[in-house]
């Protein structure tokens, strides 16, 4: 049991892919200008992580060392393509926004890194948990950064959540500041770098305090 708690903690905090490994920054920085985009990409990434981890783990004894990387990339690319197709058919409005970033999940090194560092050495249930936790850890940072940028940038929260939740989402959208003109810096790419930098700083502060 202890093992599982360790895996969870590792994914969510200690070895958080976005904050510690600093992997997958391209999609992380690109789509986090509001919460809904962040949730969308977070879910897609988590799904791919779990699927690739489980598959890699199941076939870990058959995959020979020499060709493991091409096989991992092949598996990840296939899962991403499948996610993209599913998104196109069931969440089309969201796909229109995330569109070009979904294929980029393939290049998210976090996924390949987990396949190589964890799934190729552990049983499938542990690998599934690892993928799930790494995915959730990554998604939480996406959502936090999305919330910060949306709030500062446009003064709203959960704007356009109907893209994911249907009509239920309309009630969720909150305009926090009325007549807010918006802060362009937060919406543009520099805002993403500054925001991520601040979150990393806060995490490091807590980590150092404990020692």
């Amino acid at each position: 049991m202890n093992d599982y708690i360790k895996i969870a903690k590792n994914g969510l905090w200690t070895n958080n892919q976005a904050l510690v490994a600093l992997l997958g920054l391209c999609p992380l920085l690109a789509v986090t200008n509001n919460i809904v985009n962040a949730i969308g990409l977070g879910l897609a990434t988590t799904f791919v992580l779990v699927a690739s981890n489980v598959t890699v783990s199941i076939f870990r004894n058959q995959i020979s060392k020499e060709v493991r990387i091409p096989i991992f990339v092949l598996l990840i690319a296939s899962f991403v393509t499948i996610v993209e197709l599913l998104m196109q058919s069931y969440f089309y409005d969201l796909y229109l926004i995330l569109g070009i970033f979904v294929p980029l999940i393939v290049t998210n090194c976090a996924i390949l890194a987990r396949a190589e560092a964890f799934a190729s050495k552990n049983s499938w249930d542990k690998s599934a948990l690892d993928g799930l936790m790494m995915g959730i850890g990554f998604s939480l940072i996406l959502i936090l950064l999305g919330a910060m940028r949306e709030l500062i940038g446009s003064g709203t929260l959960f704007d356009q959540s109907s893209l994911i939740l249907g009509s239920l989402g309309d009630t969720l959208s909150v305009t926090v500041f009325n007549d807010y003109q918006g802060t362009l810096l937060a919406v543009l790419p520099p805002g993403a770098f500054i925001g991520l930098g601040l979150i990393v700083a806060v995490k490091n502060y807590f980590d150092l305090k404990k020692v």
């Binding site: 058959q62 995959i63 060709v67 096989i71 092949l74 296939s78 499948i82 197709l85 599913l86």
Partner: peptide
């Protein structure tokens, strides 16, 4: 190794094209 790559490629193609077909 070549056979292994071949098998994985074929299975992957199968799944992707099946998804594309249904969606």
């Amino acid at each position: 190794s070549g056979m292994l790559l071949l098998v994985f490629t074929m299975v992957s193609i199968l799944f992707v094209s099946w998804t594309q077909d249904t969606t």
